[in-house]
Simulated scan of single mutants.
Amino acid sequence: MTPALALTLAGLSLIDSTSFGTLLIPIWLLLAPGRLPPGRIAAYLATVAVFYFCAGVLLTLGADAVLTTARAAAAAVPPFTLKAGQLALGIAIIALSYWLEARARRREGAPGKVQRWRAKTMSGSGGAGALMSLALLAALLEVATMLPYLAAVGLIANADLGWQFTGATLAGYCLVMTLPAIVLAIARLTARQMVESLLQQVNDWLTRNAARVMGWTVGGLGIAVALNAVASLLLEG
């Protein structure tokens, strides 16, 4: 592996470390009241890291085959039909974003059911399986939109590192992805008074805006998909 590739992968992994599933949800979990069981946050972060490692392995092994199949399938569909379908998908995603934001408005001022679930689960009275399920759900929702991660997997696949070094590189990448959350967890355990104020500010913002931000993010994705389809249709027309 060249130094340039190593630096590029490190930069991409640090960008990925700031995503909703790798940083914002862990911060929210770290703000659960009471003593923080290290095993609970470790279970969440380990699940995220293992998911992305396994996804990276599958993508690396099957990247060429998947791309070839996808291109062949797309070539069999008339271009107008393909772009019309893309436009319909974009509109559907935009509609979903409005539904998400409307749901957020309806839930404003409602009792903190999610906060109670967090307190129960992080205190040790709830099952760790719920945290692992949350980690898997967050990773599944994000993996297709994490462009730095997908770019990194492509770079690793094209570097011809050998399967052992490829696996080690993917493992290191996933570790760096979770590193900021690990550092914050250690700080929460060892210096709670120093970091709790900062974490609380982030948590307050997330509590007020997380659902809306999800709606805006989904809406932005839908707009991008729809505009790309419209531009292609106009150019081809």
Score class of each variant (00 low, 15 high):
T2K: 07
T2A: 08
A4R: 10
A6F: 07
A10D: 02
L12N: 04
S13P: 04
L23R: 01
W28E: 00
L30G: 06
L30D: 05
L31N: 14
P33H: 08
P33E: 09
R35F: 01
P37V: 05
P37I: 03
A42Y: 06
A46N: 00
T47N: 10
T47Q: 09
A49Q: 00
Y52S: 02
C54F: 10
A55K: 00
V57I: 15
L58I: 11
L59D: 01
G62L: 09
A63H: 11
D64F: 05
A65C: 00
A65S: 09
A65K: 03
A65N: 01
T68W: 09
A74Q: 14
A74H: 06
A74L: 14
P79Y: 09
P79F: 07
T81V: 15
A88C: 07
A88Y: 03
L89N: 03
G90D: 11
A92V: 04
I93V: 15
L96K: 13
S97F: 04
S97M: 12
R106G: 06
R107Y: 02
E108R: 04
P111M: 12
Q115N: 09
M122K: 03
G126S: 13
A130T: 11
L131A: 04
L131G: 00
M132A: 09
M132Y: 01
A135V: 08
A135K: 05
A138E: 04
L141S: 07
L147E: 11
L147P: 05
A157S: 14
N158W: 00
L161A: 07
G162M: 14
A168T: 13
L170K: 01
A171Q: 05
G172D: 10
Y173M: 14
V176E: 05
L179F: 15
P180R: 12
V183F: 13
A185L: 13
I186Q: 08
A187T: 02
R188T: 07
Q193E: 14
L198A: 15
L198C: 08
Q200A: 15
Q200N: 15
Q201W: 05
V202R: 06
N203M: 09
N203L: 10
T207M: 09
R208H: 11
R212H: 10
G215N: 03
T217I: 01
T217F: 04
L221A: 02
G222I: 00
I223K: 08
A224P: 01
A226P: 09
A229H: 02
S232H: 12
L235A: 09
E236A: 13
E236F: 07
